[in-house]
Design a protein around this nucleic acid. Structure first.
Lengths: 260, 260
DNA sequence: CAGGGATCATTGGTCATACCCTAATCCGGT
DNA sequence: ACCGGATTAGGGTATGACCAATGATCCCTG
């Protein structure tokens, strides 16, 4: 069956097909694995495939598309790299549509940021705008559950501080959860994404400022309180200070390299 | 040379090697292509490979890594999907390290946003925070060149309006250029990214509001003026109104589907 | 001598087949 | 009832071959 059918996108031998659809598919059909990718991606976007669904086994896809396994596999690689599917090996494994985790965007953003000669200082500026900017929204949208969870995180931070094994990731958790309280996924993903890359540059800075965790915690609590009571001004002010301190610590060891 | 050495990650045939390095490489070496990807990515991050550089031909990489061509090609696919390299065919083609274009992050963000059941309304909220949030920064950072270019864009918009072939992309251009005036690449990328997805949902809305372009233009000009004179309050106000109108137009045909 | 078309070499794109390895499941023995 | 090997589904990799695209080169012609 594999060789039998001509298959839709067979590489457009000069002028047989692939020109008919001209305007409909503006994409040049160079590389048929890309076509498979588009097809799957479309299915996902249209919701015909959703989180957890499993794509057919590679060998079966080969037949369905009338292409070789390499081609299918290349398509899977890019789908995987795009964070759309996750491949599991072993019996009953295969390609599963992933639930869109913000880590994905994060990784991608980190990747691009580190390549784009974007300095940590610049990232901090973005965080400043984002995290301060959501305060007004938060004052409107937080519910009891949000407050409870935020407090819980603060408690865990406090415990960690007491036991001495505090880590920046706890702060990251707070900020992410705070963003989630906007009940706007986009904010959550963004803020989480931008918090991630900082962890790197922050890791060592943190160790040089062991005491600062305590103050950060106080600020976290203050922010929760401000948001809970709807005190926009205070919330914004504290968040701004909170982030500024982070920014200051970064300015010290900012890279002089890169950046024309 | 190719066959001579045992090769680092050969899949550990039972017990010959790959166990030696045990503790040294805690990472599970599942999938060789991933190792290649990491290696290249690291080289790029370290600056040992930079924009425009060409990677060796596939066949040569096979020898260098001691793996088959499929493996190398899979690695290239994911590097390509990650936006790190661009593949060109034909003689003297190959994998070229791409210059980090913000479109890349954009595409990635768009991808994740559209997958994450993020509504256009939510995206608009983010834009609101971002674009209003940069106004204070802009008032500090704009230079004459920025102003000149922004005015030029406004002029082009006006011309387009007069001749009747105005399109939303012109508005997008304005907002993107405005973001660029922060001289913070991160902002530029973000705002551009978030403007993109809106074009889709906006395309038809725009056609139903043909007259609105004129008013948008006025607001654009007012924003430029406010930023130029450092009038933060006015700038923020106008931008807020400007975006609000966009938001209003969206609420009409917002999708009721998705989103639990 | 100059220009233009045919040729060639380089390099990615695809295919087919074969084999290995992993992991979930099944089944029989204890 | 439980444990452990056999089974099996399905991904990972290797080979080797051939096609297609494209830039460079070379030769032929005007």
């Amino acid at each position: 069956m594999t060789k039998g059918l001509p298959m839709p996108a067979r590489r457009a031998s000069a002028k047989d097909d692939g020109r008919q659809a001209g305007l409909l598919t503006p994409v040049n059909d160079r590389r048929i694995s890309a076509l498979i990718v588009d097809q799957v991606r479309t299915l996902i976007h249209e919701g015909k495939l959703s989180s957890g669904d499993r794509l057919p086994p590679e060998r079966e896809m080969c037949e369905r598309f009338g292409v070789s396994r390499v081609t299918v596999r290349e398509a899977l690689r890019v789908l995987e790299a795009s964070g759309l599917v996750e491949i599991r090996v072993g019996a009953h494994g295969g390609a599963f549509v992933t639930k869109p985790t913000s880590d994905r965007v994060g990784a991608s953003i980190v990747d691009l940021l580190t390549l784009s000669s974007v300095t940590a200082t610049e990232v901090t500026a973005v965080r400043m705008v984002l995290e301060v900017g959501i305060i007004p929204l938060l004052c409107e949208s937080v519910d009891d559950e949000d407050i409870a969870e935020l407090n819980a995180i603060c408690d865990r931070q406090e415990a960690a501080l007491d036991s001495g094994d505090y880590h920046v990731s706890l702060s990251a958790e707070f900020h992410t959860r705070l963003a989630a309280a906007t009940h706007n996924t986009a904010f959550e993903m963004l803020i989480q994404s931008f918090h991630g890359p900082l962890l790197m540059s922050l890791a060592k800075a943190k160790s040089t400022a062991p005491e600062m965790g305590r103050r950060g915690l106080e600020e976290h609590r203050a922010i929760v309180e401000a948001v809970r009571t709807g005190d926009v001004a205070t919330g914004e002010r504290i968040m701004r200070e909170h982030l500024s301190r982070t920014a200051d610590r970064l300015c010290l060891d900012e890279e002089p390299a890169r950046k024309a």
